[in-house]
Computed example of a mutant assay.
Amino acid sequence: MSTVMPTSMAARPTSPTQWSIALLGLGALALLLPTCLDLARTTWQSEEQGHGPLILAVSLWVVWQRRQELMQAAVEARPSPIGGWALLLAALALYVVGRSQAILFFEVGALIPALAGAAAAAFGWRFVRVLAFPLLFLVFMVPLPQMVIDSVTASLKQAVSAIAEDVLYFIGYPIARSGVVLMVGQYQLLVADACSGLNSMFSLTSLGVLYLYLTKHKSRLRNALIVASILPIAFLANIVRVMILVLVTYHFGDEAGQGFIHGAAGMVLFVIAIVLLFSFDAFLGLFFRNRKKKGVAA
């Protein structure tokens, strides 16, 4: 006696589209894996670039969330071999230079156009547009050149030190400053590179961009205002962090200021910045909602 299996239960052959996506995924893995392994052993273990794995995880999560759109774009593919291959080969050349010469800015940065070029060559620019956010979000994983970090950090430390001194002196504390060294009472505190605020600015910017992606505000002006507020908010939060450390040291001693409180101040900075960002968005929400209601009434 023979049995005929229903069509729905029969094994379905893998479509060319699925094979193409699988090959694209393997190619991306071949580029990402060695670089990410090297970063995990070195750069990602530092305080400055510790957010790298989270950036990569968020990008992969967004790709998974948009998998249906990607499949649809792949089914309706209109490959762009000329533009795609040109972008891919240029990016691969930059990748080879960066990896062979240990220039992380080139090596990691080249991954983004390389993935975009491969996707365009295989499926077309519509597919790349669906991938646009997770690809661009990887920018926050690219380590900045040390020359840029040093120049920006020096300026930020000077500004943070000066403002913290002015505010604390205004409210009555015996504080003075020499460069980036704050002298309060019998203590001297050096505003180190980690206290410049550059790391928090980078991390908060990535969080703010992700927040805008998830909230999907329709108003471009509202989105632009939120983006414009991210760096000032991070700078302000870092000033508060430095002031907290100065006050803790002044009232409770150097051991308290350099101990647990010093590490916890980083978390306080992040919380302050997030609260300010959300509060600013809520304020803008009131304005834009009111404007919308007025437009409807009119």
Rank of each mutant, 00 (worst) to 15 (best):
G208F: 05
V209M: 14
L212H: 06
Y213K: 12
K216I: 07
H217N: 13
S219K: 09
R220E: 00
L221F: 07
R222P: 00
R222I: 02
N223G: 14
N223F: 01
A224E: 04
I226N: 09
V227N: 00
A228H: 04
A228F: 09
S229A: 15
S229Q: 01
I230F: 02
L231V: 14
I233Y: 01
A234L: 06
A234I: 04
F235Y: 04
N238G: 04
N238K: 04
N238C: 07
I239E: 02
I239M: 11
V242D: 03
M243T: 05
M243V: 03
I244C: 06
V248F: 03
V248A: 13
T249V: 10
T249K: 02
Y250P: 06
G253V: 05
G253Q: 06
E255I: 01
G257A: 09
G257C: 08
Q258Y: 14
Q258A: 15
G259K: 05
G259F: 06
F260I: 14
H262D: 12
H262K: 06
H262S: 10
G263C: 05
G263H: 12
A264W: 14
A264N: 11
A265S: 15
G266H: 11
G266L: 09
F270I: 13
I272C: 13
I274H: 01
I274K: 02
I274V: 15
I274T: 12
L277W: 10
L277K: 11
L277R: 10
F278I: 10
F278W: 04
S279G: 13
D281M: 00
D281I: 00
A282W: 06
F283A: 10
F283T: 09
L284M: 06
